[in-house]
Structures are given as C-alpha cells and as structure tokens.
Simulated assay, not measured.
Amino acid sequence: MDSAITFKTPYEKRLELVTQALMASSTLDNDVAHTAAVHVLHALDSIPEKTIR
C-alpha cells in the first residue's frame, strides 16, 4: 500500500486561507483569487514589524 502524505507549509496554508476569503467576499474565480492572494501575502510580509526590547 502506498499512501501519500501531503504536507502544507505555513505559507501555503495562509495562501489558501486568503484565496478562500477573497472568493467568499467577491465574484473572483479561483485562479484570480489565488493570484490576488499571492500579492496580498507579499504586501503583508513586506510590512516591517516592531521588535520588543
């Protein structure tokens, strides 16, 4: 028996979450929502975070 184990990285999980959110709140299809989600996550990842001392 050969069972495949699928592993999603944290980025892939966030990408799926944002894609689903975009599709739920608009009329975007999956491909367009996925592309937009990539841009959204890139923008969010570019925001500098404050470090606590």
Rank of each mutant, 00 (worst) to 15 (best):
T27L: 05
V38Q: 13
P10A: 04
L28Y: 06
D29F: 01
I47F: 04
M23W: 04
V18I: 03
D31S: 05
A4S: 08
D45K: 14
L41F: 03
D29T: 06
T19Y: 00
R53V: 08
N30I: 05
E49D: 12
A43G: 11
K8D: 03
D2E: 13
D31W: 06
D31M: 09
V18Y: 05
S3M: 07
A37H: 10
T9Y: 01
D29H: 06
L41A: 11
L41W: 03
A4I: 15
V18Q: 00
R14K: 01
K13T: 02
L41M: 15
L41Q: 11
T51E: 14
A21C: 04
M23Y: 00
Q20C: 01
S46G: 12
E16F: 03
D31V: 01
T35W: 01
V38R: 09
L15M: 09
I52F: 08
V18G: 00
A21P: 05
K50W: 09
P48H: 02
E49F: 09
T6D: 06
P48I: 12
K50P: 11
I47M: 13
Q20Y: 07
L17E: 13
T51L: 11
L44R: 12
L22C: 08
V40G: 02
L17W: 03
D2M: 07
V38W: 02
Q20P: 00
P48N: 07
E12Q: 11
K13N: 00
F7K: 14
V18F: 03
P48V: 15
D2F: 10
H39Y: 03
V32F: 09
L28M: 14
I52T: 15
P48E: 10
I47S: 08
A37N: 11
A4P: 11
Q20V: 00
T51R: 13
L22M: 02
E49I: 14
T19W: 01
N30R: 15
F7R: 13
T51I: 10
D29R: 08
E12Y: 08
I52V: 14
Q20E: 02
R53E: 07
R53H: 14
R53P: 08
T9L: 09
H39N: 13
E16G: 11
D29W: 02
